[in-house]
Design a binder for these strands. Structure first.
Length: 608
DNA sequence: TTTAGGG
DNA sequence: CCCTAAA
């Protein structure tokens, strides 16, 4: 942008010169004007912030100057004003220069300044009205202000400047000169500048207006077009500006013109601009505020969100790649991300409550009002949003995950259960598959049992088949319960599928109990969740179950308690392994063994 | 970091 | 499942 600006400036200057030559070579003031034009930088608003003038502005200025010139011919006052304007420009320039500090532009500007200074006497000569002293004073002030503003606003300016956007207002035309003008003169000037009359009688306003007229004009010009008196340069900028400019800018401009309100608007604008980091790219003056806001939001939105890798990975894997990889999603552009997220949240809120219900079909609504602020869900949310309508199955999954994620923090034990139920329902297909797997497994096991000799081989087979199955279906429902309070402990309950159990057993058989990390790595590499600790815990449970089962087997109906009945074969295996590892509970003598033995002879026998 | 155990 | 101590 900067470079461009610089170029533009150069061009403008050239143009100016040309224009000056063409139009009124005779006017010393014009000359100055032309030079000043170079200084595109214009102070924008009251805030004192300066924005680099855009080419358009420059063009406009030139146009104005030309117009003024033409008018001036007829109206001396106007001419004076015009001449003065350049002075102001100079001032502005001085301000801006430091901020902008553009390569070429800067040097040029400096030169121009020098020239102007040299010229000043001439100008003075031609225009006795303006006193050099007053000018200088103003200049100094402005300069000082400019410096201050520049220091504080430097960043913003640069941004803006780089953007080259239209915010530029060119010059505050010489307040000095304007000060001297009468209201009538001001009106004239105003008319000359804006091409329309003004009923405003506030001298200050008029002066300001005129000073900033360029800005307005810019807006206007931008809006409609730039009046190039044969100057094309603007076009580029215009195009940029035009984006929003046409409607918004125009309106704004008109509003401004009407009254003091403008000032406010301008101020707002500046603020926005300053705030906007993105301002560079978007320099549109008119729409800027909106655009900027959006941009800003985008930027802010983009903050990296933490998500639980565990879940995401799990979900992903489980979904068998259907769901997007979390990283991928996050990787999206900020803007896109923002968009996605935002809508997602919005929808999320709305859907959130209803969704689970509908899905669950339970009709029970969980007042999740207190949605967990937990970040975790985002991913799912995104996914949800994204896929929302697309894939039914996918949706199901997503919903599931989302539900899990969203679980409300504190209370809801019931809720959790509910969720689980829901998830289960959702996952019915999965469950069914799982069941199938189980059956298969069971059958195999039974076969194996009948074979009795080598559980291991059986296991491997089973595990393989299961694995495949599991791979596709994966898992079951994942219920996540975040307990926000105090600790955000989230209970992540994932029922162990038979497949997993089998794998675990197999793993233990292979690596031995206690090598959880190994088992985790080798056998559960595909399961993101299920940490080594989980494996350990599960094994413990299995162990317990197996022996307990054997003991109670007689009296208790195994099926009764266990939601997920573990095949006897598995239990046997577990017991066997336990024995091998010396983990077998030695509690009650061998009685337990006996029982188990009855069910599984060989294993038992070995054990006993 | 993993393991083992308690809650 | 979670948490934590111990290695």
């Amino acid at each position: 942008m900067k470079m461009v600006v610089g170029v533009e400036e150069n061009e403008e200057r050239a143009i100016k010169d040309v224009a000056a030559d063409t139009h009124s070579s005779g006017f010393a003031p014009l000359k100055q004007d032309s030079d000043p034009i170079v200084y595109k930088l214009v102070r924008v608003d009251f805030d004192g912030r300066f924005v680099p003038a855009t080419d358009d502005e420059l063009m406009e200025v030139e146009d104005l100057l030309e117009m003024e010139k033409s008018e001036m011919l007829s109206i001396p006052d106007v001419v004076e004003a015009a001449s003065h304007i350049p002075d102001n420009d100079e001032l502005d320039e001085s301000f801006e220069k430091p901020d902008i500090e553009k390569h070429e532009g800067l040097s040029q500007i400096k030169l121009a300044k020098v020239d102007q200074e040299n010229l000043r006497p001439q100008a003075e000569d031609s225009l006795p009205k303006s006193t050099s002293s007053s000018k200088d004073t103003h200049v100094k002030e402005s300069a000082n202000m400019g410096e201050e503003s520049s220091s504080s606003l430097h960043d913003g300016l640069n941004k803006n400047g780089s953007a080259g956007s239209r915010p530029n207002f060119s010059l505050t035309k010489g307040e000095i000169d304007l000060d001297k003008l009468t209201i009538r003169e001001l009106h004239e000037t105003f008319r000359a500048t804006f091409g329309r009359k003004t009923s405003v009688k506030d001298k200050m306003w008029l002066k300001r207006r005129i000073a900033m007229g360029l800005t307005n004009s810019c807006d206007v010009s931008v809006t409609s077009f730039i009046i190039n008196n044969g100057k094309l340069l603007k076009k580029k900028e215009l195009s940029n500006n035009l984006d929003c400019g046409n409607s918004a800018a125009g309106e704004i401009c008109s509003a401004r013109n009407d009254g003091p309100v403008n000032l406010v608007v301008s101020n707002l604008r500046e603020d926005t601009i300053d705030d906007d980091e993105l301002g560079n790219s978007f320099t549109e003056s008119g729409c800027r505020s909106d655009d900027n806001l959006e941009h800003r939001a985008a930027k802010r939105a983009r903050k990296p969100t933490k998500r639980y890798i565990e879940e995401s990975s799990d979900t992903e894997k489980e979904s068998s790649g259907k769901s997007l990889s979390p990283s991928k999603r996050f990787g999206q552009d900020k803007a896109s991300l923002k968009e996605a997220i935002r809508p997602a949240w919005g929808s999320y809120l709305g859907d959130f409550v209803t969704r689970p219900d509908s899905i669950g079909g339970s009709g029970v609504q969980v007042p999740y009002v207190s949605r967990v602020r937990r970040c975790r869900p985002r991913k799912s949310i995104t996914a949800l949003t994204k896929f929302n309508s697309s894939d039914v199955a996918l949706n199901r999954k997503i919903v599931e995950s989302s539900v899990a994620e969203f679980k409300p923090p504190p209370d809801d034990h019931s809720r959790v259960e509910l969720l689980e139920t829901k998830s289960i329902q959702f996952g019915k297909l999965i469950v069914s598959e799982e069941e199938r797997d189980k059956r298969c497994l069971t059958s195999k096991f039974s076969d194996g049992i009948s074979q009795a000799a080598e559980p291991k081989s059986v296991d491997s087979v089973d595990s393989t088949s299961l694995e495949n199955a599991s791979g596709n279906n994966s898992d079951d429902h994942v219920t996540t319960i975040p307990t926000v309070k105090g600790g955000m402990r989230r209970k992540h309950h994932r029922a162990w599928s038979l497949t997993e159990v089998t794998k675990l057993v197999d793993g233990v058989a292979m690596f031995g109990a206690g090598r959880w990390s190994e088992i985790k790595r080798l056998s559960f590499s595909s399961y993101a969740h299920r940490t080594s600790v989980d494996l350990k815990d599960k094994w413990r449970n299995l162990l317990k179950a197996s022996f307990a089962n054997s003991q109670a087997e007689k009296g208790m109906n195994p099926r009764k308690n266990a939601p997920l009945p573990i095949p006897a074969s598995v239990l046997v295996k577990v017991r066997e392994l336990a024995e091998l590892n010396g983990q077998a509970p030695q509690v009650s003598k061998g009685s337990s063994n006996n029982n188990s033995g009855s069910s599984v002879n060989e294993n038992r026998s070995g054990y006993s």
